[in-house]
């Protein structure tokens, strides 16, 4: 099937590579790898929200910020123990996710994009302005999760989170919910006329993906040790979108690979400065223009796709252009 074009086999190989990599890498690249998992979590969950369910949201990194800040503030100012702080932050993200999901029920396309963009900016500006609580642009210190100086535990924690998130999301998509989400994306009115309770599933997908974004933010905050409002700036959202689109907006593993490849590339090419993002913007446009399912699914199933396309030629008349 198109939507699960990554075979289990190639995923297993990639997982083994990811598990073994730290053995051959220096601390710098382990650090980079651990950050890559943050983006992988965001890109994959955004792919579920935007690619599967068709809810193009610009507020995804704001949920990472929400999770990160909530956990940091609970653990710091409120003095919660770490697990309690983390769980509180996750629950908060679930509630806010449900709220946003409910608010945007009637919005679609560019209106949804503008709405979530505005929500995200409002939240970020609050983080900037309310210095008394968030320390604004100075940054909020966040306690670490592990003792010791090594990033290796974070690397494996991040990897575990990515694997867990993928398993959970794929599990969800394998049930009838996956079918309903795609139906909603294709035509919400028709889905409703087919008996699908679209309200319920749209809110559900916002809750699930917001929680994963928040988990990513919590992980990132405790790992890096400091949070600034810049975690939620528009270029960060652009990075996540580019990763998912380049990797394959309708393929969760594709989005993960897109995130890892884009992030590693941008680290490797550090000496080229902003040229990297020029390249990324160009790649985003070109991929969307010429390969809307992303690069990695295309590479994976080049031969199969050609067959499918041949088979998909309408047998009677042309496709209606109604």
């Amino acid at each position: 099937m198109l939507h699960l074009s990554f075979t289990r086999w190639s995923q297993a190989v990639l997982l083994i590579v990811a598990l073994l990599l730290p053995l051959g890498m220096g601390p710098y690249w382990i650090h980079v790898g651990a950050i890559a998992w943050y983006y992988a979590l965001l890109a994959a969950s955004w792919a579920l929200l935007a690619g599967y369910a068709g809810q193009f949201s610009f507020a995804h990194v704001a949920f990472a910020a929400l999770g990160g800040y909530a956990s940091a503030l609970c653990a710091g100012q409120l003095g919660f123990s770490l697990p309690v702080a983390i769980i509180t932050a996750i629950l908060l993200a679930a509630v806010i996710g449900a709220l946003i999901g409910a608010l945007v029920l009637r919005l679609s396309g560019p209106y949804l994009a503008l709405f979530t963009l505005a929500i995200s900016e409002i939240f970020r500006l609050m983080l900037v302005a309310e210095e008394d609580v968030t320390r604004g642009m100075l940054g909020l210190p966040v306690p670490g999760l592990f003792t010791g100086k090594s990033d290796i535990p974070y690397y494996y924690l991040g990897l575990a989170l990515v694997v867990l998130a993928l398993v959970a999301m794929n599990g969800l998509l394998a049930t009838r919910v996956g079918l309903f989400l795609r139906a909603i994306r294709e035509d919400e009115g028709a889905a409703r006329a087919s008996g699908v309770d679209t309200t319920r599933y749209k809110i559900l997908v916002f809750v699930v993906t917001s929680v994963i974004a928040a988990i990513a933010g919590i992980y990132y905050g405790h790992f890096i040790g400091i949070l600034t409002p810049n975690i939620a700036i528009l270029p960060e959202m652009g990075l996540v979108i580019a990763m998912a689109v380049i990797g394959g907006i309708e393929s969760l593993p594709g989005a993960v690979i897109g995130a890892v490849v884009v992030f590693l590339l941008s680290e490797t090419l550090r000496s080229y400065g902003e040229w990297r993002f020029v390249l990324m913007g160009l790649a985003l446009i070109l991929v969307q223009r010429f390969a809307q399912n992303g690069l990695f699914p295309v590479l994976e199933s080049l031969g199969r796709r050609r067959q499918e396309r041949r088979a998909a030629i309408p047998s009677v008349g042309g496709p209606s252009n109604g």
């Binding site: 079918l179 795609r182 139906a183 294709e186 035509d187 009115g189 028709a190 889905a191 006329a193 209606s320 109604g322």
Partner: peptide
């Protein structure tokens, strides 16, 4: 049914 078919086109 709809006046102009509204199928789930990419399913």
């Amino acid at each position: 049914t709809f006046q102009v078919p509204r199928l789930f086109r990419r399913m």
